[in-house]
Design a protein around this nucleic acid. Sequence first.
DNA 1: TTACTTAGTGTAAAAAATACACACTATATT
DNA 2: AATATAGTGTGTATTTTTTACACTAAGTAA
Lengths: 229, 229
Amino acid sequence: MKEGLAQFNSVFSIDCVIFGFDGGELKILLIERAEEPFKDWWALPGNLVSEDQSLDQSASSILTSLTGLRDIYMEQYYAFGDPGRHPQGRVVTLAYYALIRLGGEKELHPVTSYAKRAVWWSVNDLPKLAFDHKKIFDKGLEKIKRRIKHQPIAFELLPEKFTLTQLQHVYELILGKKLDKRNFRKKMLSFSVLRELNEKQKGVSYRAATLYKFDRRKYAKLFGKEISF
Amino acid sequence: MKEGLAQFNSVFSIDCVIFGFDGGELKILLIERAEEPFKDWWALPGNLVSEDQSLDQSASSILTSLTGLRDIYMEQYYAFGDPGRHPQGRVVTLAYYALIRLGGEKELHPVTSYAKRAVWWSVNDLPKLAFDHKKIFDKGLEKIKRRIKHQPIAFELLPEKFTLTQLQHVYELILGKKLDKRNFRKKMLSFSVLRELNEKQKGVSYRAATLYKFDRRKYAKLFGKEISF
DNA sequence: TTACTTAGTGTAAAAAATACACACTATATT
DNA sequence: AATATAGTGTGTATTTTTTACACTAAGTAA
């Protein structure tokens, strides 16, 4: 990318806002750049798109190379292409967001050559970001705020089995406001996309809550009808 | 574009789904291709993105070159980049939709070299489209269906002054279903984004309806609060 | 056994969405 | 002048959805 920007008609990349939730805060995964431009700055993980990969594949492989995870929920949401957004020439970038469940204490593998390391940062306490990545992040957060109201994406941030209180926390974090417990449960259960398990939370020092699973099959049946979480 | 695809890292274009409304049907503007590939096929108007233009500017200039219109409502909505979507190599395209008011009997100027002519087609009766343009169109229609429910984009398809019935028609066309007249009016007026004019429709052979204007100022004040049309 | 912490539950009031029909008015036709 | 025609403009009752609100039950820790 560095050597020959000028010869390309256009340079096209993908950047990812990878959201993670560990039960406490909403986080995103940033890499520390090993190369100019913006050496030593924090940036969204990204890459140029190779000839033979689809856009979605390309985004997935960025994610896999950093986290080792596969089959992650990702969605493209906006293309950024102001001339001047990249100091070395015209680079159009397509932004994706991804949602993953943290807490598995996964090792991060920044195997990409341009990154020194990858670290989870709380979205409420981000460092200064390279390029226009702050703008890209802001738009991404805005998009998932909108999305979570109509699509069941909160589940992607939680483990397979979760409690209703955990689910509510995710909504509260993303929407940025408190919700009423009773009303939240009533509404959530009314969609019939949750399956109650015969199982309780473990390892808590208080009354254990019932675990639930998101039922993709039931959800698929609903699809088409617009849902408002 | 034809000569040297292979030498580019990636080729990046913009395609536009230009929606128009003439009081009757919802239409889109298609061009008949003058060149291979897909010579003589109908296609969405599009172009490669030049080095120094922003993406939005680039989309605007496609629209201006065809219609002569400026300051049109446009919005990017999705990037299509499957390897294989273009027979001559990897071309990533960013899709925009635009909404314009027809009826001014504007001449169409297909000044782009690759188009023989440009013609408005009813969305219910489209010809076979080149490349993956059918897919691009489908997604565009889906997007404005979603959008019209939450953002005041219907106005973009109507003249400055319009009747409530005309406005209702636009909603019915895009949403693909009949709406109740009294409920529609009640709801629409409740948003207080319309200004009633001291003016009546002209040239109709029946009772003339009151004309309204969309009040962008009032709308701007509402913004932030989510609206549901 | 007691203190502590979170789980889990129902109801009433307010707001929003829906279903529904007829008289009025401007024009065109005879 | 009378009449036909076509769309305008309006209100209410019912149902559904949303909101506001507080206490008891269950399990753990000391």
